[in-house]
């Protein structure tokens, strides 16, 4: 394992029955923000789910160098919220991770929950069941849950969908707070502008080809593709 690496993929081939990619080998360091781009149905979600440990790789393996409990934050495409529970309950699920046992444990969990809720601007909804919230508000709740968790690696699958620009800025600002503390972020993103503004690296999957690029390389690659 290399020094300061949170994730390493070793000849990883993703897919369910058929491979969706060529073997992928790379490393992710703390503080990196990676956006996965590519057309629908190409395997972006499968890659995220494989790293989250929810889908078995077809070949190769990957090493997560994070804590077994609480080291990984995950926002699935459908957000993974407990719809019948309150906003505060959902956010507190994240806050219960990564808080060491102590006398003040419950107080600290509560503070983390409240802080995450405030940061995402949903304090008025804290006592409401999630099912009553709009799609955009639910996305903020899912982000608040991860913010309260403070994971070492955050996986997010299209978590900016249904958000207006104001809320995209709010959510990305909150995620940036995590990144500044050393969290690495891997996010599936459909809007290339969001990826360009926020990410530090781009993973692109196209026709089972996987490319790992810096933002500059990706911009050159995209403009070359457009000229063709």
């Amino acid at each position: 394992m290399s020094e300061g690496v949170v994730l390493s993929l070793n000849d990883l081939v993703i897919g369910y029955d058929e491979p969706l990619s060529e073997p992928i080998s790379l490393e992710v360091k703390p503080g990196e923000i990676i956006a996965i781009l590519g057309p629908s149905g190409i395997g972006k979600t499968t890659l995220i789910r494989t790293i989250a440990g929810l889908v078995r790789p077809l070949q190769g393996d990957f090493d997560l160098h994070v804590k077994r409990r609480g080291g990984l934050g995950y926002i699935p495409q459908r957000l993974g919220l407990v719809r019948h529970a309150t906003v505060a309950h959902n956010v507190s699920l994240g806050a219960r991770m990564n808080v060491p046992w102590s006398r003040t444990m419950f107080q600290e969990r509560n503070e983390r929950t409240q802080e995450a809720i405030r940061t995402l601007g949903i304090e008025e909804k804290a006592g409401e069941p999630v099912r009553r919230l709009s799609g955009g508000q639910q996305r903020r709740v899912a982000t608040a849950r991860t913010l309260a968790q403070r994971p070492e690696l955050m996986l997010a699958d299209e978590f900016l969908g249904e958000l207006d620009q104001h809320n995209v800025d709010l959510v990305l600002g909150a995620v940036h707070e995590l990144v500044e503390k050393g969290t690495a972020v891997i996010m599936v993103e459909h809007h290339e502008d969001n990826a360009k503004d926020f990410a530090t690296r781009i993973w692109e999957i196209k026709n089972k080809r996987f490319s790992d690029m810096s933002i500059e390389e990706w911009e050159l690659h995209s403009s070359a593709g457009e000229e063709e």
Binding site: G70, R78, G80, L93
Partner: peptide, 15 residues
């Protein structure tokens, strides 16, 4: 029940 809350919980490391 829907699988996504379970998956989120498992990935997070909830017991």
């Amino acid at each position: 029940m829907a699988n996504d809350p379970l998956e989120a919980g498992r990935a997070m490391g909830l017991s």
